[in-house]
Computed example of a mutant assay.
Amino acid sequence: MTSTDSSSATADDRSTLRANCADCFALCCTALGFQRSADFPIDKPAGRPCLNLADDFSCSIHSSLRPRGFRGCTVFDCFGAGQYVSQKLFGGASWRERPDTGATMFRTFAVVRQLHEMLWYLAEASERATTTELSEPPSHLRSEILGVLDGEASQILAADIERIRGEVRQALIDVSEEARGGYDARAGAGVSDDLHPSADLAGRDLRSSRLCGADLRGAYLIAADLRRADLAGVDLLGADLRDARLEGADLSRALFLTQAQLDAARGDDTTVLPAALTRPRHWSTRRR
């Protein structure tokens, strides 16, 4: 993939929503800022190139990001926004070649990333919708977002992202409710009485639990033990899975799971994944 044209994507094809760093001007390493934390060993202001950025826009420590403390870099996903902005919107001219475009390019990247992420979720929503009533909103919103992306950078920056995000959120909730409705409402009973959106389940022992159909949108599952858990039909939209134990867990039918969430978690070759996602390289291959 040499350049990304979002308008060519179909509802069941998310290939154009995957990052292709070779065709990006390291926008995530430049446009975004971060602070010293467990995920980053240094402070970096937004708009300033990372100190590890090479002249060819590659990362000079890419093979050792985790041991050097840059774990946050390894779990970031631009959903293909980097190459779309670099190649299509700015014609393949980098911010180094055209310093005058840098500020606008960085701002546009932040907006396009949000739009591409919404397209990713809408693609799944379209796949899971079983009625015309449920499938129409994702289809309409996808068309609207693609229309925005077909504009110039100035038009993209002027788009009402908050309104679009709100409508996308409602469409995803509606599809989620219908998809989860097929599971036993008592799933998870006796395990926890607080399986709900934004639940604080950090560090919770949920080993071998049948959580089917639970709504865990935005839940805090940091370091939660989900080994051998059945997460069929579990809505994980925006859930924080940092260091969650997923060895042996079945995520094949989980709702709205992203690659970034998997990359932040811990798993192995017994973790069952959705077809659209890949096993993180840092996961263990040793069976437990």
Rank of each mutant, 00 (worst) to 15 (best):
S15T: 10
A249V: 05
P45T: 05
S3N: 06
H282E: 05
R165L: 04
E127Q: 14
A11M: 09
L251Q: 10
L221V: 05
K44M: 11
D250N: 15
I222F: 03
G151N: 12
R228Y: 03
T4Y: 06
D55S: 15
G82C: 10
R266Y: 14
S6I: 12
R186T: 15
S154F: 09
G69R: 08
Y84P: 01
A219Q: 03
E97Q: 15
R68Q: 15
R245L: 13
L262N: 04
A223G: 03
E247P: 09
R204Y: 02
A110T: 15
A81G: 06
P49Y: 01
S60F: 03
I164Y: 08
E97K: 06
H62L: 04
C212E: 15
G188A: 06
E136K: 04
A254G: 08
A254W: 01
Q170L: 12
R207E: 07
A199F: 09
D43Y: 10
V168D: 11
F76H: 07
G82Y: 00
G238C: 07
V75P: 06
V85N: 00
S135K: 09
P41M: 14
I164T: 11
T285L: 02
S192T: 10
R163A: 14
Q114N: 12
A171M: 05
A22Q: 11
V191D: 03
F70Y: 14
A264G: 12
E144D: 02
Y84T: 14
A22H: 05
L255R: 01
L53S: 06
A187Q: 01
D77H: 04
D174K: 09
D250L: 04
H140Y: 01
S208I: 04
A93G: 05
D12M: 07
A275F: 02
F90V: 09
V234F: 02
R210D: 15
D200F: 00
R18M: 02
I222P: 00
M1T: 14
L119A: 13
L226A: 01
G181W: 02
T74P: 03
Q155K: 01
S154E: 15
S7W: 00
W120G: 00
R245S: 14
D13R: 02
P41T: 13
S139L: 08
S143L: 06
A265V: 12
L65E: 06
G203V: 13
A187C: 13
R36M: 12
A229V: 05
L277K: 15
S208Y: 02
Q83D: 14
M105R: 09
W120E: 00
R227N: 07
T30R: 00
S15H: 09
R96V: 06
L53F: 04
G33E: 08
R228F: 05
A265L: 03
L115Q: 05
A229P: 08
E247L: 05
R96Y: 01
D263S: 13
F256P: 00
I161L: 06
F57E: 02
G91N: 15
Q35A: 13
D184A: 10
C78M: 00
A38Q: 13
A81T: 03
T108Y: 06
C78H: 00
A185F: 03
T10D: 09
P137F: 11
A158H: 09
